[in-house]
Every structure is written in C-alpha cells, then in structure tokens.
Nucleic acid binder design. Structure first.
Length: 703
DNA sequence: CATTTTCTCGAT
DNA sequence: TATCGAGAA
C-alpha cells in the first residue's frame, strides 16, 4: 500500500436535494426546470436549490426568483414551508434522515450536511475482496462509474458520451493488477470495489427513497468530494491517486474543499499561483511559513493528492438551531419585536429539540443566542450562551432575551431597540444522553414499533450487519424504534425546581397587535402563534436513531459471494407519498404572523415584589431578582471582574482596524490568524476599559 | 438594505 | 471555556 492510498473514502452528495424532495411530493415538477425558493415578497423569493434543467438556463442558487424567471420563462417554483413566520426546513431534514438511514446499512457514515455524507469503505472493501476472492470485475457492476483520467490518450475534443465512459472504465479495469489469494490488493482494485459498493448504495437509496445522487470514490475526503463533482448528476467517479497530477495541473485552487474562501485567495495572491498543481513547487517549510504549520503541512500533502482527515462516525447533527434575517427596513427596532421573534424561533427550536430527544435519546445542555446589528458587516455581531435546562419555548425565548437585552442602547424600559437587529439566531448544543424515558411515555414495545418502522423490513433482511446486537447495550433503549404521543392537552403550566423559576408553558402568544406594521411589510406571513397545541398531537413513528450504530463495527458484509444478482435490498412497501399532496406544502396564500403585543390575561403576580408581570416574561423577571440578590451578595467585593465581563458587549460596534497585508513580513499572509493578530488584542483591551454598564447588566452580559 | 438558513470546525 | 470567524451547502 502506497503512502496516501491507505483508505477508500467516498462522498455521496444528493443531486439538487431540495428540488428532488419537492419533485417527489409533486410529480408535476419532475423533469422540468424547477427551483426551490424561500419567501416570496422580496423579488419573488430567494432560490436555494436548482434542478439541472433550470441550470441549463443559467439559473443558479442565491438568485432571486424574479431574476431567474427572466432566464427561464417556464421556471417552476416550489416554496419552502413557512412556520412561525419563518422558513422551515423540516421537510428536507426528514428526507435527509431517510437517505442516511439507507446509506448506513452499507457503511459507517459521517453526515457532512443535510445532503452529503462521507464514508470510509476501507474495511468494507477488504471484506468484499476476501469474500469474493474475485480479481476480475465485471464492468456491468459499475454502470454509472467514471474513472477520472481514463481513457488515457483520448482526444480532448472527443464528445463526452456513454461510449467514452465505457472505454475509460474498460481500460481502467484491464489495467488493474489482479490480487492473488492472501496477497495485498492494489489501491486501484480497492477503489474499484469501493465504487461497486457505492453503486449498490446509490441504487438502494434511489429505490427506497426515490432520490438520486452522485458520488466520488478516492483515498481521502478531499479527493472524494472533488471526484463527486466531476460527473454530476446521477453518476459516480473514481479518482485514482495517479490521476491527480494531471487533474491538479489545471484545477483552480478554489475548487478544493476549504480553499474556496479567503485562504484560497491568499494562497493565490501570496504565491502567485492559480492551480492546485502549482503548489508542488513549494517546500513544506515555505508553505508552513506562509500559512502556518498545520495548514502548510496540509497543503504540502494535499497538492500531491494526499490527505488524512478521518471520516467521523456521526449521523446526527451536533447542534440544532434556527435563525431569521431581518434585513434592511425590516430590522427589529422595538423590544416587542425582538421578543416576539425570539419566541417564534424558540417555538421551532422547542419542537425540533423535543423530537430529537424522543427519537435520538439525547438532550442539549447549552443554548446559544446570536444577533446581528444593523450596519454590522459581520454575519454575527454578538453571541452568548447559557444553560439549557428545559425544552420550553417560553423559557428559551425569555432566557434568550435576557442574554441579549443589554445590547439595547435605548435601555430596557424603552419600547425602542437600538441599534436595530438584522438577525436573530438561537441554537442548542452540547448533547448528552437523555435521562431514561421511563415515565408514561415511551412504553410501547419494541416489537410493535419495530414492525411499523419503515426501515424494519430492509433492515432485518440485510444479513446480520446492524441488528440490535451490535449496538452498544447501554443505548439499547434509545436505539429502539418507538412511537409516542406528544403531550398536548396537558402541558405543565407552573413548575419549580432548584434555581429555576416559574415558567409557563403551552400557549404563550401575546395577543395580536394591530398588525404587521412593526416589521415593515417585507415578508409577512401567516400567523401560527394562535395555533393550538393540538397541532402537536400527531404521533409519529420513527427510528430512534442509534448513534452507536455508527460506532459499531461496519455493516458491510451485506452482499458477497455471488456478486451477480442478489444484493438487491428488499423494497420498502411504504412509499406512496407521491400521490398525496402534502397539505403543508407551500401555497402562495400569505397570512401574517401576529406582531407582538401586551396581553392582559397573561399576567402573574411576582411573589417577590408583587408586581404584575407578563407570564411569559416571568422567568426573566425572576432572573432579575436573582441578579439583584447576587449583586447584593457581592456588593463588598471589587467590581473589577464585573467590569471586565461587561466590556466586550460593545466590541461588536468597533471592529479592530485591519492592518498588515498579505505581503511583506516573514509570516506575511497567515490569513485568518495574523492579520488581526497585532491590532486585535490591543483593540480588545482598549474596548474593555470602556464598559460603563451597571453591575446588574454585566450579570447578563457574561456569566 | 435584501442572496437564507443551517451546519462544523479551528483559533484564541 | 466561551466567543468569533471561516467555510460550505
């Protein structure tokens, strides 16, 4: 095994995934120039996915629908669902789970994004080679596979046809060194077997979900990703190490994963080179000098096609969050607006977190809140985190507000919010295993649930690969498939616990104010704030995904020996959704989320100060008392620590001066690290003097 | 103003 | 550790 060829790594990428999801739902969209867009008011909405037919017309992602229509008259537009006044991607996340479940039957996968997964096929390939003891591979097993660099010596002018693909494949197969028994197989043979597995996996994904994808098969993640893009859509590409030199000779540096941004540009500028292959002319020391030890070493290997980043066994996201922009005139300029929209985000977050807990048996412990302020060029002006102790929208939104309220320079008793906010973001992370769900929920038998799982059939039919036994025992309970009925009628209303305060659950929507005047008419939507909790009643059957199932040893020996016909996974009977027009599908009906208001009926009396407080603001109010108490208890101690923590609040408004260029000094263009390096810390220190916030405020700013 | 909404990771 | 920024889809 040669250096850099130790592994077989694949990347599978769904072709224009959101479009396929909508096309499966609505057959009229199939085989048409089609896009998925979110929102509608502003220039017809923003495009986030484009069918290949539409791409032929020049339509691209991030284009406005109105503009795209000028490129393609008969463009079909599917809309992202809107809930809580914001775009809601649940639909696509669920489709993603379908795909990942199928792929996970073939290999341990790393979820790279909603529509992409990496997999390390090394062990699977070796297993196949052992079982098959076959050293000649039938080209008919690789019907959608391209070999990058093959056929060798074909004229560049030759049209790209199936015939060309086939000639390349045959030439490649003929060049492979057959491995004798007990002998180490060649890297090329291993890639080929890997491609065979990926052919099977992609066929299974299409059969069971209806979705098509492309794939790249190579020796590392970067090459696999690159290869995947070489023959899209609905095709896969092997990228042998020996083909890298030629490919890299005319491959712009920015095409490589992680080099598409500032680092890539700085490489081009600093070294005066354009293509990936040009980097081979620089010593490792040179590259380390310019870009840092780690990046330099990475580049030195990578331009030779060598890279070692591991495929991480992880199917579940490590954070669950939601955000919404309020650009331009729609920026949030009153406290009520800020609270309202935080609550809308919190409603979605609660729903997703609750489902995640029930399905995946884990709970998030940390809540991060981020905002962007009008005029700030950075994607995030500010972010802070706090403990996440309860999955409850009112608690989440009031805590979120407490975290950011000191950003309001108008002061907390003012109606105004200054400077206006152009982005709100809340995100939950730091997951741990959920406490055992012993209570009244989750009592249905495993068998019952399992039999209803849409995965059960194929799962069980597929050898022994990943049945329950191979799953880590401690997580067994969570690993089972269960259905449950979400508590809807009886939400806990008032609870106490430890240092937690009164929190009010369930309905918490402030009564509708006059109307949407608050956010100046840009993207106004239907209001679901008044929607009854009954909406949640729908039960669902879903696999309680086992993260362990990925850490468990491979599941590769799915097929073997008779490499001819078998290996077709059992067809899932349950895919009839194409017919049924999802009522949640986007219509162009526009309703409005209710703007904030003060509701008179939701008042509680604080037992500390007898003040009337909005119920959903009670947690925050209690925080106030808590903070006051805390302040008293610290009143004698020096205020220095408070001052230090309070200061960086204002940092967002004064970005440090950008100095130093990509030229000049020794470590000239260490892009991210150094440019800010000298001025950054100094500036930060300066800013930290200015904090004149009260001690109470400082409590909220930092913890 | 107005490419959104999500993600992951590394540096500090 | 918490926060920020880069990068990607």
């Amino acid at each position: 095994m040669e250096y850099g060829e130790e592994r077989v790594v694949a990347l599978v990428d769904m072709d224009c995934f959101y479009v396929q999801v909508e096309q499966r739902l609505n057959p009229a969209l199939r085989n048409t120039p089609c896009v998925v867009a979110q929102y509608k008011t502003w220039k017809g909405g923003g495009i986030i996915a484009v069918s290949y037919e539409a791409r032929d017309h020049g339509v691209t992602r991030n284009m406005w629908v109105d503009d795209a229509k000028n490129l393609c008259q008969d463009l079909q537009v599917a809309r992202v669902r809107e809930l809580h006044g914001k775009a809601d991607l649940t639909h696509y996340r669920e489709a993603s789970v379908e795909v990942i479940e199928v792929m996970s039957r073939f290999a341990v996968i790393e979820r790279a994004s909603i529509d992409e997964a990496y997999m390390d096929l090394t062990a699977a390939v070796q297993q196949r080679l052992k079982d098959m003891s076959v050293n000649r591979i039938d080209p008919s097993l690789l019907k959608t596979t391209y070999i990058q660099g093959y056929p060798q010596s074909s004229s560049e002018l030759e049209p790209h046809t199936e015939d060309l693909r086939s000639r390349g494949l045959h030439q490649w197969l003929a060049s492979l060194t057959p491995s004798s028994l007990g002998e180490q197989s060649s890297a090329g043979l291993q890639l080929t077997v890997g491609a065979f597995i990926v052919e099977e996996m992609r066929a299974a994904v299409e059969e069971q979900t209806g979705f098509r994808c492309s794939a790249g098969i190579s020796h590392n993640k970067v090459l696999a990703k690159l290869a995947c893009g070489l023959n899209k859509p609905n095709r896969q590409t092997i990228l042998p190490l020996a083909s890298v030199t030629e490919l890299f000779n005319s491959l712009p540096i920015g095409k490589i994963r992680n080099l598409g941004g500032k680092l890539g540009s700085s490489i081009t500028e600093t070294l005066g080179v354009e293509n990936m292959g040009d980097l081979t002319r620089f010593s490792q020391a040179q590259l380390e000098l310019h870009f840092g030890d780690k990046t330099g070493r990475w580049l030195y290997d990578l331009c030779r096609g060598i890279e070692f980043e591991a495929v991480k066994p992880r199917q579940l996201p490590k954070s669950i969050g939601c955000s919404k922009n309020f650009p331009g005139k729609t920026s949030l300029a009153t406290k009520e607006e800020v609270q309202f929209w935080l609550h809308q985000l919190a409603l979605e977050l609660e729903e997703r977190l609750t489902k995640d807990r029930d399905v995946n048996g884990r709970v998030a412990k940390s809540l991060t809140v981020g905002v962007r302020q009008l005029g700030d060029k950075r994607p995030s002006s500010f972010s802070r985190c706090c403990a996440l102790v309860r999955y409850e929208a009112t608690k989440i939104s009031s805590d979120s507000f407490a975290i950011i309220k000191s950003l309001n320079t108008a002061g907390n008793q003012q109606a105004a919010w200054t400077p206006p906010l152009t982005l709100l973001h809340i995100s939950a992370s730091k997951f741990s295993d959920a406490p055992s769900s012993g209570g009244i929920t989750g009592f249905l038998s495993t068998e019952t649930s399992l039999s209803q799982s849409r995965f059960s059939t194929s799962q069980l039919s597929n050898k022994s690969s990943l049945d329950a036994k191979s799953v880590s025992p401690c997580k067994q309970q969570h690993g089972t498939i269960q259905s449950f009925f979400q508590k809807a009628t009886e939400r806990p209303t008032i609870q106490k616990d430890g240092e937690e305060e009164v929190s009010v659950g369930g309905k918490a929507s402030p009564a509708p104010k006059s109307a949407s005047e608050s956010h100046s008419g840009a993207e106004r939507r239907s209001s679901d704030v008044s929607e009854s909790p009954r909406r949640h009643i729908k039960s669902f059957f879903q696999k309680r995904s086992t993260e362990r199932s990925s850490s468990m040893k491979n599941s590769l020996n799915i097929v073997e020996k008779n490499n001819s016909e078998d290996c077709v996974p059992v067809v899932s009977p349950s895919r009839t959704q194409c017919e049924n027009p999802d009522n949640e599908q986007a219509t162009d009906v526009e309703l409005n989320p209710n703007p904030p208001s003060g509701a008179s009926e939701d008042l509680l009396t604080c037992d500390r100060c007898s003040q009337e407080v909005l119920a959903w603001e009670m947690p925050e109010h209690n925080d106030y008392h808590f903070a006051m108490d805390l302040q008293k208890s610290f009143s004698s101690s020096s205020s220095s620590s408070a001052a230090t923590t309070s200061c960086n609040i204002s940092s967002s408004s004064s970005p440090p001066p950008l100095r130093g260029g990509v030229t000049g000094s020794a470590q000239s263009s260490r892009v991210k690290t150094k440019i800010r390096g000298q001025s950054g810390p100094a500036a930060k220190k300066l800013r930290s003097q200015g904090g004149s916030a009260s001690t109470l405020d400082s409590f909220f700013k930092k913890n």
